[in-house]
């Protein structure tokens, strides 16, 4: 994978991670089969894919926020905060002091539903104060001052009064801004955003994306952004990783991937975006055939095999390797063996 020089080591490196959910009366379900990601300060990596592809599970695994029956079966999550030793988060215990010092403090997270993700019985200010007093040991009054200035910074009007409001008294956009203020309270090195704009209307969505980009510049933090919306990816990402059924099928520079997708799944995704065109130039949208199989029925090889129009012998049985294509990488047999057959449309 063409990476920037060794000098700026990645802030977070997810290496070969597998996440399985165990259940008492069924075989384990491997929700995430193999993920490799790297995040650098000041950059945004977008993790895209449809519901159930494991993008949220991957992101939550970074802070051990999945349900108790989720196990990181293999791989490492290496976190290297500036000026500190590298830690393998995957090896930390879920309620350990080491992990709790990272949570909120160095890696913060914002969630999809700003209503249900904030406690209904505590004021917005209390919930932000808590983060500051917890990690920086400030007195309540000092914490509240910081909270008010944070709320001001994320564009909440009347931050003094809003700090004393309860989540249900705020609009969806304001709630998400409060959530962002909370996540930024301790100046994290990495912000994980799990579909932060999905529950918002289009205008608010654009405002929140702009705000996140602006704050990223101010704070110089890395951002791991989960979404299923390719429009949002185009708006915010530096790099993109496309996931399908627990596998990262294609990843790399966002312009490169969008311009020349090489994995059949990515190509199919791009074709299913509606575009505005004159009547005579309009084309029918081509949906991806079939439905996503359950993780239990996933073939040993490439997980897209059952729906891929180009599938051939090795696909079902052998897992494709990461193959460099242009400025990014993809996992597809067509790019190695299939190159001879020359039937991959560019």
């Amino acid at each position: 994978m063409p990476q920037t020089p060794m000098a700026d080591r990645p802030l977070l490196k997810i290496e070969d991670v597998e996440i399985a959910f165990s259940s008492p009366d069924e075989a384990d379900i491997v929700a995430v089969r193999q993920v490799d990601l790297a995040l650098s300060p000041g950059k945004t990596l977008c993790l895209v894919g449809e519901s159930g592809c494991g993008k949220s599970v991957t992101a939550r695994a970074v802070l051990h926020l999945n349900d108790q029956n989720a196990v990181i079966g293999r791989g490492r999550i290496l976190f290297s905060p500036p000026g500190e030793e590298t830690v393998d988060i995957a090896a930390l215990k879920s309620d350990s002091l080491a992990l709790r010092k990272i949570r909120g403090n160095q890696i913060a997270m914002i969630f999809q539903e700003p209503m249900s993700s904030l406690s209904p019985v505590h004021t917005v200010g209390d919930q932000i104060d808590e983060m500051i007093t917890l990690h920086e040991g400030l007195k309540p009054r000092e914490a509240r001052e910081r909270t008010v200035s944070l709320l001001d910074q994320v564009g909440v009007p009347g931050p003094h009064e809003r700090a004393n409001s309860y989540p249900f008294q705020l609009s969806g956009g304001l709630r998400q801004r409060a959530m962002i203020a909370m996540a930024l309270a301790c100046k994290p090195a990495l912000l994980i955003a799990d579909e932060p704009t999905t529950a918002l209307d289009m205008t608010t969505q654009a405002q929140i994306l702009d705000l996140l980009k602006e704050l990223q510049e101010d704070y110089g933090m890395a951002m791991l952004f989960i979404t299923h919306d390719l429009g949002v990816v185009a708006e915010i990402a530096d790099e993109v990783a496309v996931m399908y059924l627990g596998d990262v099928v294609e990843q790399g520079d966002v312009f490169d991937v969008f311009r020349a997708p090489r994995h059949p799944y990515t190509q199919a995704l791009m074709r299913s975006i509606p575009t505005i065109a004159r009547k005579k130039e309009r084309q029918r949208l081509s949906p991806i055939k079939g439905t996503v199989p359950s993780a239990k029925d996933r073939p040993e090889g490439c997980s897209f095999t059952s729906r891929c129009p180009y599938a051939f012998e090795p696909c079902a049985g052998t897992k494709p390797d990461r193959t460099p294509v242009g400025n990014h990488v993809a996992r597809c047999h067509l790019l190695t063996e299939g190159a001879r057959k020359a039937e991959v449309p560019a």
Binding site: L63, L65, D95, R100, R103, A108, Q112, S119, P120, M182
Partner: peptide
């Protein structure tokens, strides 16, 4: 099971 519990956990509070 509510999301606000996950949020509280993601802040770094003891369980």
């Amino acid at each position: 099971k509510k999301p606000y519990v996950t949020t509280a956990r993601s802040k770094g509070l003891p369980e």
